[in-house]
Simulated assay, not measured.
Amino acid sequence: MYKLLATDIDGTLINSKRELTDTTKKAIYEAYDKSCVILPCSGRGPLPLQDITDEIDLDLPLACFNGALVIKGKSGEILYEKAIDKQDAILAYNEGVKRDVGVIAWTFDNKLAFNEFNKFTEHYLSMANVKREDVIIIPEHMEIFDERISKVLWQDEVENMDEHVAYARNLLKTVDNNAMCATSQPFLLEFTHKDANKAEAIKHVADAFGIEHKDTIGIGDGLNDIPMIEYAALGIAMKNSHRETLDAADYIAPSNDEDGVAYVINKFMLGKE
């Protein structure tokens, strides 16, 4: 049986109604009681994830900002931290402004910054667990890029994202940089350091808990989940995954509306069919 499960949150651990179901919580608790490690992984930071972590209410490790920050349980001990290079953060910001998208940046100390308030950033704010008056407006405070930035995001209509992804990937191939980009939601494209990803989160948490690579599972649905799906001994995509994520997986689990994570825990960690 596997001993470590790294699971994406949105589109994977929680359902399309943004609920953590009783079935999934029961499976997590049973795995925890058997000394298995459940590692929630998200593009979000610790503050926006607080509702989920409070609901689970276990001493679990947590990978935030797509693996740019990995912390150990309720102690908050930092296991890994990797900021995007300043020049790459500014590049992502400037190119996003040119493409007329909502541009968002997070610092490691939970400062949230927007290029402006518009329908995209207003929507993001509703998910961020940050007060409107605390948001930094980047054109008025370009010094934000002197701080350690975990990630820069572009937000736009879903139907425009494939074009943005193609543009950003080509951009990163043509300029000297240490960045990578991937979608975390159908409407969000995220830029991070190339060494800040969910695969790195698995490595550092496995080391911290003394778990061998052969005992690891990575499960998710988005493009930003591909590194951990490819790295883990068993890479699993949800049935509701992006097509590239499905192609990267060893196994396809039921969707997030069918308690897919609970199914995986029961089958591969608890030995239940």
Score class of each variant (00 low, 15 high):
residue 73 G to P: 11
residue 5 L to H: 05
residue 49 L to T: 04
residue 208 A to Q: 10
residue 218 G to T: 02
residue 243 R to T: 09
residue 77 E to V: 08
residue 213 H to F: 07
residue 135 V to C: 05
residue 196 A to S: 10
residue 178 N to S: 14
residue 227 P to M: 01
residue 157 E to Q: 12
residue 87 Q to R: 12
residue 248 A to F: 02
residue 203 K to E: 11
residue 185 Q to W: 10
residue 72 K to H: 09
residue 261 V to L: 07
residue 10 D to C: 02
residue 112 L to K: 05
residue 165 V to C: 10
residue 101 V to N: 14
residue 146 D to N: 15
residue 43 G to N: 04
residue 249 A to Q: 13
residue 222 G to N: 15
residue 262 A to F: 03
residue 61 P to F: 05
residue 237 A to F: 03
residue 171 L to H: 03
residue 226 I to E: 02
residue 153 L to I: 11
residue 4 L to G: 04
residue 122 E to P: 06
residue 60 L to S: 06
residue 73 G to M: 13
residue 48 P to E: 07
residue 148 R to N: 12
residue 57 D to A: 15
residue 106 W to P: 02
residue 187 F to W: 15
residue 139 P to R: 13
residue 47 L to Q: 06
residue 245 T to A: 07
residue 57 D to T: 09
residue 82 K to W: 03
residue 111 K to E: 15
residue 140 E to H: 09
residue 132 R to C: 08
residue 201 A to C: 00
residue 13 L to N: 04
residue 226 I to H: 00
residue 104 I to Y: 10
residue 230 E to G: 01
residue 50 Q to F: 04
residue 129 N to W: 11
residue 238 M to W: 04
residue 25 K to C: 04
residue 99 R to E: 15
residue 266 N to D: 15
residue 110 N to Y: 00
residue 204 H to R: 12
residue 100 D to L: 08
residue 42 S to W: 03
residue 77 E to K: 05
residue 14 I to W: 05
residue 49 L to H: 05
residue 122 E to F: 11
residue 79 L to N: 02
residue 160 N to S: 12
residue 116 E to S: 12
residue 109 D to P: 01
residue 89 A to E: 06
residue 66 N to F: 00
residue 210 G to Q: 09
residue 238 M to C: 06
residue 51 D to Y: 12
residue 271 G to E: 11
residue 91 L to G: 06
residue 203 K to C: 03
residue 130 V to T: 13
residue 220 G to L: 03
residue 6 A to W: 06
residue 232 A to P: 05
residue 7 T to C: 07
residue 179 A to Y: 02
residue 273 E to S: 13
residue 10 D to N: 13
residue 184 S to V: 02
residue 134 D to M: 07
residue 46 P to V: 09
residue 108 F to Y: 07
residue 246 L to V: 14
residue 112 L to A: 07
residue 127 M to T: 13
residue 73 G to A: 13
residue 38 I to K: 06
residue 29 Y to P: 04
residue 180 M to E: 11
residue 127 M to R: 02
residue 169 R to P: 08
residue 136 I to V: 15
residue 12 T to Y: 03
residue 39 L to D: 09
residue 24 T to V: 06
residue 57 D to N: 15
residue 268 F to T: 10
residue 104 I to W: 11
